[in-house]
Design a protein around this nucleic acid. Structure first.
Lengths: 91, 91
DNA sequence: TAGATATTTAGATAATAGTCTAAATATCTA
DNA sequence: TAGATATTTAGACTATTATCTAAATATCTA
């Protein structure tokens, strides 16, 4: 996991919103775009960053590209956070 | 907690390094600056963002300003992450 | 294979963010 | 209170990022 990519990806509010939308199930880029007021091109840019950070997965279904959450990375992020904040010498 | 401030603060590698350094105990701005190759002014800027996000606390001791981790916010961040990635309808 | 649909990529622009130097503020001590 | 030390704040510069429009790519279907 590229730590820097993950934290950068999570730093944008739109991208966190995308993750929240995907909680209710996988969606195509087009379906996702209905939930946001930015252009499809901008959304595609955000999806690329999320994909690059491995926060989402992507698969093609015909003409559509279907995006879904990659929850396993969440555990890794939490482990890192735990590491950032746990005091050394603590039992 | 201002979610946006926290995620933005965590997005920068230098700031995550600052948190890691503080794991071994609280430090003054000057002591911290010995650990980094940026100027004290730049470091001060990062510390201000961490403070603003409530990821660190600050107290004055004479001429020095002592920074320490605010671990309680880590729990909140993890809760948010959990929320971002947990599938709806999941038990 | 031509046209329609779904999505990304390229290139431009504007806003944000990180860094620096120089100056300002706060505290201590002789 | 003057000077020294510790740190922040201000202002400028550069790099990165988010957004847009227009063009390109991929897939399906008549």
């Amino acid at each position: 996991m590229k730590q820097q990519l993950v934290f950068k990806a999570l730093a944008d509010g739109t991208r966190r919103d995308i993750l929240r939308v995907l909680r209710s199930g996988s969606k195509s880029a087009g379906e996702l775009s209905e939930e946001f007021s930015i252009t499809k091109a901008s959304l595609s840019h955000h999806l690329a960053l999320l994909l690059n950070a491995e926060l989402v997965r992507r698969e093609r279904r015909g003409q559509q590209l279907i995006y879904s959450l990659n929850s396993s990375i969440a555990e890794e992020v939490m482990a890192i956070l735990f590491g950032l904040f746990s005091h050394k010498e603590d039992s």
